[in-house]
Design a protein around this nucleic acid. Sequence first.
DNA 1: ATCGACGTTGTTTCC
DNA 2: GGGAAACAACGTCGA
Length: 534
Amino acid sequence: MTQHRSIHWFRKGLRLHDNPAFLKACEQASEIYPIFILDPWFAKSGNCRVGVNRWRFLLQSLKDLDNSLKSLNLRLFVVRGKPDKQLEILCEKWKISRVTFEVDTEPYAVKRDKDVESKLTERGIEVIKCVSHTLFDTGSVVKANGGSPPLTYQRFQTVASKLGSPAKPVNAPTLNDVKGCKTPILAAHEEEFGVPTFAELGRDEGSCGPLLYPGGETEALERMERHMKKINWVCSFEKPQTSPNALNSSTTVLSPYLKFGCLSSRLFYHKLVEVYNGKKHSQPPVSLHGQLLWREFFYTVGSVTPNFDRMEGNPVCRQIPWSSNPEYLEKWSNGQTGFPFIDAIMRQLRQEGWIHHLARHAVACFLTRGDLWVSWEEGMKVFEELLLDADWSLNAGNWMWLSASAFFHQYFRVYSPIAFGKKTDPNGDFIRKYVPEVKKFPAKFIYEPWTAPLTMQQTAGCIIGKDYPRAIVDHSIVSKANISKMAAAYNAAKKDNSNSNSDNGKKVEKSKKRTSRTWHLKLKGCMETIYIYI
DNA sequence: ATCGACGTTGTTTCC
DNA sequence: GGGAAACAACGTCGA
């Protein structure tokens, strides 16, 4: 029987449950080295868009992972450096015969893993990859759809249903699974391979917000179980009915745990199957199962669409002439637009790292097609930095959705930065919490405090334009103008299509469109610096 | 081929 | 207060 010396490389998938690649590392192994690789230079250099709250989430997740490994008499090695280089060094040093990791479908990761795999294979090291981050192998969804990704949710559902139920999660390793298998630890383990401190990353822990969502698998499983106990709530869950401005989140907030893989989407999916069992329950797209399918949908499209996180060169994205407006962007990003509902959401995002899905809609629409006419790419970058659950495919996909650049086309449906929040929070308690400048305004004026008489502003201790900004745009005017601009951009695209068709003088419209949408991956070097392994 | 129904989650006005 | 229609009108899908 072969005695392997294995490395399991953690990237996402920061968990022991439903981790088939980790189990593979343990099989027939005498030594196992669980590693996580990160390059502290990226954190310091500011080349990565990772805010301090997400760093904290990552560090906590790594600590939790190390603790769980300790209970199996194993340890985590946090390796400093670049993955390809470090893997090469460690495989040599530890005489490794097998390397395992979870499949990551993001284009930069696909390239990274392909390079690593070919280097390791050349050295005679066995590489084992397992799909466990997504419900399905995204490649087989694309294949089942005829080689291109499904571009509507309905289509995605039809294709996914052909693949049957998602695979069941595998169990976490037990002491029995790892018997005869050890992690050789040096005395200097903590110094060389310990979980980094904030100081090492050049970050200030003191600038973190309140700890509402601690990182880690342990926390993820507890949080999921807490929600699964509310059987009626789970069965009647309908996303559009939940509130964007509740003071205690109206949804599960499992997204950060799913992003880092502290929670397996397959485990969550099958837990829901158990809860639903025999009961009447809501259905996709609005149900909790539906939410997991949305994640899967964007992962699938993002896995094969060139330039998915940009407008240019992105075959699914409508080309819209956004304006560059650094001042608007800066005010939006820091919650200084003068619209208390928008500013409250942006400040919650910056402080706490999580905002409700519909709150994301409101601020994304406001930044792009609704009010400020700033490119969705800019908003995506801000979310990327500040969201604990910042997930490449979902972030880009949803920004295209909200800006009516892809997937969603009813650009005349514009969220009102004044009216939308009132539906679920007529008193404005959410605003009072996050925009304390205006907290003394009566409910009637709190969504549009500039309409309050000056005497009332004085009583509230907040003069608009002095203590809190005046609204940077007139929503009723700019939203109408922007709808016209959207119509023009949509018309221009239509015209372009018909022109190119008539130029050829042949009936090529369909095939022409197809060719321009050929699904080849073109990788941009810049992605590597941005999405650094976390 | 054309047309109508539909699309996770709009707003305002009117009764 | 709640429900429905008007607002202006997109792309996709299937009959």
